[in-house]
Amino acid sequence: MTPSEPFLSSVLQDEHSEPPSAGRNHEEQGEQDQGRRTVVEMIGVCRTFPGTPEVHAVRDINLTISEGEYLSIVGPSGSGKSTLLHLLGLLDRPSVGTYLLDGVDVSELSDAKRSELRGERIGFVFQAFHLLQHRSVLENVELSMLYRRIPRRERTKRARDTLDRVGLKHRVEFSPQTLSGGERQRVAIARALAAEPSLLLADEPTGNLDSGNADAVLDVFDKLHGEGLTLAVITHDDDVSTRADRRVRIADGTLTDEVAS
C-alpha cells in the first residue's frame, strides 16, 4: 500500500478534464495537463448480450482512471468483471455509452483502427499468461511491438531492457516452458510493458500462481506503479486488490467506488 500517494476521486477528475469532443488529441492534452492526464474515461457504458432474456453484463458504468493511478476492480465471478476488462481493453464495444481512451472516442472506431490503438495503448497481462510455447522469452516480449512500426533492432533492445526491469535478464533466451509460473507471468508483464502502453490491464494476474510467486508479481506491479505506470488490476482476491491505491467493486454489472483503506 502506498498511502502517501495523492488520491484523486473520479468526481474530481471529471470536473478537471475537458468535455469529450471528437477532435480532441490526447497528446496535446497530455502536454497541457501533465501528471493528471486522464487515461480512461467511461461515461454511461452498458454492454448487453442478445438472447432471451437479454443479458445486461455491465450497466451504466462511469469510470475514470488517471495517469499513474493503480486501480483494482474487485468482484466475484459472474459480476461483469471480464466484460469490463474487455471493454477497457478495446476487445469489445459498449452497447451504449462513451469510452474515451487517452481522450480518443473509441466506441465508433473500425475494427482495424481499434486493433492498432489496442497495440499502442493497452498492455494485457492474463491469468493464463498466454506465452507462445515455441518461442524464446525474448521473442515473446518482442511480439507486443511486432504490429507497430518499430524497427527490429529497437524491438530487441526494448525487450531486453524491459526483461531487465522485471528481473528476468538471465532468462532472455530461455523457453517459457522451462520457467516457473511467476517467471512466466513476469515475462507476460514485460511483454505488456515493452510496448509502452498508456494502461496496463491485468486480469487475475495471480490466479494461477502460488502465494510466493503472486507476491513477486505484485511487487513488480508496485515497482511499476512507483515508476508512474497506470495500472488496472481485475481480481476477485482481496489480498491482490488491497495493494492498489484505489479500489472499485463490481457486482451484478454495477460499479461502486470503495474508499481506500
Binding site: 476487445l91 482495424a112 486493433s115 507462445l132 511480439l143 507486443s144 511486432l146 504490429y147
Partner: peptide
C-alpha cells in the same frame, strides 16, 4: 486460438 487472441490483444488486425 489462444495465440490468435494474444496477437489480436497486442495490436494485430484481422488482416495481420
Amino acid at each position: 486460438i489462444s495465440e490468435i487472441g494474444l496477437r489480436r490483444a497486442v495490436g494485430a488486425t484481422r488482416r495481420h
